[in-house]
């Protein structure tokens, strides 16, 4: 017994150490590092409820430890313990106190609950229509007349009103650092608002089992200054107004030919093309390839060669391209940008 208790201490120390080492997770991803008012309100409620609960736990553990040490049967102990039926005062006490603690929790629960369910009109918030697909995210800005996929672009410090749905199965839209979360139901629309208070990249996740590649259904949120956001919108619109990007090199021109023939049926670029797959208008600006891989030409090529290998169960077929075709296609796709940086 003694030996085991020592091991137990070592184990818990190890576990604690590990958690400290890991910290509270990545800034971009963790619900413990709120970067907006919604996540902050939620974090406050978490802190309040866990503080109360830890208080209760300490009381329970104190009595527990005392009882286990004080009342363990000693060798040679005689007699029969007093058979206590109960104690009304105590029983009332531990009914009323938890009830009061719950009331303390209930008040902010109600106020925050209703605050989070407010709906903001377009005068007060950027309106974004989110449609979840197996296994990618479509983002439309109906008031701004632009559409994108996988990388959600938002202005900093401004409320964003989401209207969410799904085209196939149920998914759930979650940006832990900004606040979460709401399901996207096929055939129904849900609403949620969020706001980011710091510029930068945040990670978004699908939180509802949606098929084989549920784990890989990540997206990114790029939060920028209002001016940059306006530029981005203008860039998106500008591209849409004119013809699709004209190829900048012979290789890219070859890629464009392949693209127009094999890809445009499902993927839109600059307002032309199908809606089966993600819109690729600003593909070259995207943070990741397929939402998960680093944005490198090699990863794009890998995807094009065998999309099922990277995201099993996704709807993109293997186009059976040879290496040269892939190379040309990558070259072309890397020109699909609305940013001046690239």
């Amino acid at each position: 017994m003694k030996g085991w208790q020592q091991y137990w201490r070592q184990f818990s120390l190890f576990a604690l150490l590990a958690l400290v080492l890991t910290g509270c997770g990545k800034d971009e991803l963790s619900a413990l590092k709120p970067s907006g008012p919604v996540a902050a309100m939620q974090f406050d409620l978490m802190k309040l409820s866990s503080a109360i609960m830890i208080g209760v736990f300490i009381v329970v553990m104190a009595i527990f430890t005392y009882v286990l040490i004080r009342y363990r049967k000693r060798p040679g102990q005689q007699g029969i313990p007093k058979q206590v039926e109960g104690n009304h005062a105590l029983e009332i006490l531990w009914t009323v106190i938890p009830f009061l603690l719950l009331i303390i929790m209930a008040i902010p629960t109600v106020t925050t609950g209703f605050a989070l369910h407010k709906e903001y009109p377009k005068e007060e918030a950027v309106q974004v229509k989110v449609t979840a697909h197996q296994f990618w995210w479509e983002f439309e800005y109906p008031d701004l007349g632009v559409a994108t996929a996988q990388d959600l672009v938002l202005p900093v410090g401004k409320k964003v009103q989401f209207v969410l749905s799904a085209s196939d199965v149920k998914h759930a839209f979650w940006i832990p650092a900004l606040g979460g979360k709401i399901d996207t139901n096929p055939g129904q629309e849900n609403k949620m608002w969020l706001q980011a208070d710091k510029t930068g990249i945040y990670y978004g996740k699908c939180a509802e089992l949606c098929g084989a590649s549920h784990a890989l259904m990540d997206f990114k949120v790029e939060v920028m200054e209002q001016a940059d956001f306006d530029t981005w919108v203008a860039g998106m619109k500008g591209v849409q107004a004119k013809e699709p990007v004209t190829a900048t090199s012979p290789l890219a021109a070859e890629g464009q030919q392949i693209f127009d023939k094999s890809c445009l049926g499902c993927h839109a670029v600059a307002g032309k093309g199908g809606k089966m797959g993600p819109n690729l208008t600003n593909f070259a600006d995207r943070e990741r390839v397929a939402g998960i891989k680093a944005h490198t030409p090699e990863n794009i090529a890998d995807w094009l060669k065998d999309p099922q290998k990277i995201k099993p169960g996704n709807k993109m077929p293997n186009l059976n391209l040879d290496d040269n075709q892939v190379k040309a296609l990558v070259e072309y796709m890397e020109t699909l940008s609305v940013s001046e940086k690239k």
Binding site: L45, S49, T109, P176, G180, I182
Partner: peptide, 22 residues
């Protein structure tokens, strides 16, 4: 008791929006 504690925490809907399906 720990399971019950996290249960109460999960009962707070606004906070549950973060916990849910995680």
């Amino acid at each position: 008791t720990i399971g019950g504690m996290t249960g109460v925490m999960l009962a707070v809907p606004p906070a549950d929006y973060q916990y849910h399906d995680s």
